[in-house]
């Protein structure tokens, strides 16, 4: 069922996606700076959440240290720019460094998750992010800890509109790459691992290898989204390595729909907008100062009552429709007759 669904993209969906993309491209010419920055942030977080969905939704690894990647990428940019000067070569170095750093974490986590299962992986990854955060806090001379590290970024990224387009291109490329990955033979094995690892092993697949590849792909893409986030924010502090960032990624992909990849884009848009809304309500009542309370409550509600998210609903509906159509065709009856029966 799930495998079929990925193959069939209907024309109307293509039209909607292209229309949305065009609307997005107009945004920087009609909206204020705050909106442009918010939409850029949504697009970068969308990539972060999509890469998370590869792990949680496709291969079934719960990585609670995902902040390692967005924080790591941003720190690479920040530290290289402040220590060795601002420029495109340094940016390229940051991209390479982040990829290597993310890949190393992916290999370590892959080793552990292959040996000890989902629960232990969740526990250790949480601890990894915490180590990284305490390291960055104690490396105060360079990172300035929780106070944070402001830095300048090279052109063209110092222009808000150009940064917006850069984020857009980044999102499109990464979404395309990740989509291709999920459709590749390895991507099919990921789903087999998630559904029933033992069966996948019996069928002769090397599930550890498939999981490690998923971790590598997701971690590197997550790290690159950190590089982009650093360029957008021009500031990095230890909050980016906080558990909160991991929870955000989980929430975006969960609300959009676990295992649907593009759902993460939708989820990121909704949640970031909701967060901004709550922050604006701070003046109304002090309780909105604690916006995290609402995000946490939303998160619990979604896990309990909407485990498949928005895209999940949509796909279910689409499946049902397709099934109905097929049944009708098989029965070779005009639809109204069938409905009466």
């Amino acid at each position: 069922m799930i495998l079929q669904r990925l193959d069939t993209i209907r024309k109307i969906e293509v039209v909607i996606i292209v229309a949305l993309a065009i609307v997005l491209l107009i945004v920087p010419h009609v909206a204020g700076t705050a909106t442009v920055t918010m939409v850029s942030r949504i697009m970068i977080f969308a990539v972060f959440a999509m890469s998370y969905d590869i792990l949680r939704g496709y291969v079934g690894v719960i990585h609670l240290g995902y902040a390692l990647f967005i924080g790591g990428g941003a720190y690479f940019v920040g530290i290289l720019f402040t220590q060795f000067g601002v420029g495109i070569p340094m940016l390229l170095l940051a991209v390479v460094g982040t990829s290597v750093y993310s890949a190393i974490w992916a290999l370590i986590v892959g080793k552990i998750s292959g040996k000890s299962g989902m629960i232990a992986t969740a526990m250790i990854t949480m601890a990894f992010a915490e180590i990284m955060r305490s390291l960055m806090t104690s490396w105060f001379t360079v990172t300035r800890g929780a106070d944070g590290l402001p830095f300048r970024v090279p052109p063209p990224f110092n222009d808000r509109t150009m940064m917006f387009y850069a984020s857009f291109i980044f999102m499109v490329i990464m979404a395309f790459l990740l989509y291709k990955f999920t459709k590749s033979p390895t991507g099919r094995v990921w789903q087999a691992v998630r559904e029933n690892e033992q069966r996948a092993i019996f069928l002769g697949y090397n599930t550890n290898r498939a999981r490690t590849i998923a971790l590598l792909v997701a971690s590197v893409v997550g790290g690159l989204s950190g590089v982009m986030f650093g360029l957008l924010n021009r500031f990095v502090n230890t909050d980016l390595l906080d558990m909160q960032m991991t929870i955000n990624a989980m929430l975006y992909s969960l609300i959009g729909g676990t295992g649907t990849l593009f759902g993460a884009i939708l989820g990121s848009a909704l949640v970031v907008y909701f967060q901004n809304l709550l922050l604006d309500l701070r003046g109304v009542h002090f309780i909105f100062e604690r916006w995290l309370l609402f995000i946490g409550a939303l998160y619990i509600v979604v896990v309990m009552f909407m485990p498949r998210g928005i895209m999940g609903f949509y796909y279910d509906w689409k499946d049902k429709r397709a099934q109905k159509k097929r049944l009708l065709q098989e029965a070779k009856l005009p639809p109204q007759l069938n409905d009466e029966a």
């Binding site: 719960i62 989980m250 409550a297 998160y299 309990m304």
Partner: peptide, 21 residues
């Protein structure tokens, strides 16, 4: 297992925030 981890995480966020409230 996945839902358990996520739901207890959500509870931990909410109840820690309640302390702050």
């Amino acid at each position: 297992v996945g839902a358990q981890i996520m739901i207890t995480l959500g509870l931990s966020i909410v109840f820690t925030e309640l302390i702050r409230v």
